[in-house]
Amino acid sequence: MAWSGASVLEAYWLLLKGALGSGFALSETFARATPLIFTGLAAAIAFKSRFWNIGAEGQLYAGALIITVLGTGMLDLHPGLMIPILVVSSAVAGALMLLGPVLLKINFGVDEVVTTLLLNFIVLLLVSLLLEGPLKDPMGLGWPQAEPVTEAAELPRLFRGLRLHSGLLLALLFSFIFWIVSIRTTLGYEMRAVGFNQKAARFAGMPVKRVMIITALISGGIAGIAGFSEVAGMKGNLTLDLSPGFGYTGIVVAMLAQLHPLGVIISASFVASIFVGADAMSRSAGVPSYIADVMVSVSLLCMLVSVLLVRFRIRWS
């Protein structure tokens, strides 16, 4: 940051003010945090079982795609019925995306990192294909974008005139549910056990394969709902730039939260404030907004190291 010639302290102050300084800024930050809570949760759930789902980006788009198909006029229901149906269908779409990689991993030992990563590219190309073909909005002035979702499918705004939408409440709800699941249910226990020591879990009679498939389906489903929340709450329609890497940032969010479902809320807000703040900072101080990505990835690596050092100190002292 010092390279770019702006005073460092001043730049940080601008970042802080841009992220938290006003009602508008807060709304932007939490609107940005909403998809990150979903994708962070998706990564946290999968990583806890040592299933490396790097495909949240693709699952998000798969969820968004199904919402676009169903939500732009195909279904015409009361919002009270419409929104739950859309949530479920986006979750199913996301989960299906991850079914292939998890089955390949279990049956053939194919590394899920590579398959989920490559699927991201495939889904994005599929979205591009459909946006230029069957799903293209005739009113879109030639831009590759889909028709906006109907009013019944829209997630209501929380405050008049601000972009913060009720997807945030949904995200909080899911974090809470998974916190309960992970500490209070057999499934949560099994998911942790599989992640901690697969052999021991198998020896203890746990259905390791089934637990892994369930974990993957939940993780993919949550990432799919992120797509729903972005289309129905934030943007209104599906475009190719729906997600500026929410799937990848979700991994950072999950690691910063140390894979804790409630911690994800805090770390997603933290990461979102950096992104929103950096946008504001780059407008007023002339620092390229890519600084946000740099700061976020540096904080990931620092977090990894510090967690390790903390663990060592406890053992040795």
Partner: peptide
């Protein structure tokens, strides 16, 4: 340090990519 090679690798990718753009 023996950190997870998956997560660290993704972290390196994010850092190097964003640093390049920056």
């Amino acid at each position: 340090l023996g950190l997870s090679q998956h997560v660290t690798g993704i972290g390196i990718t994010l850092l190097a990519t964003s640093l390049s753009s920056y």
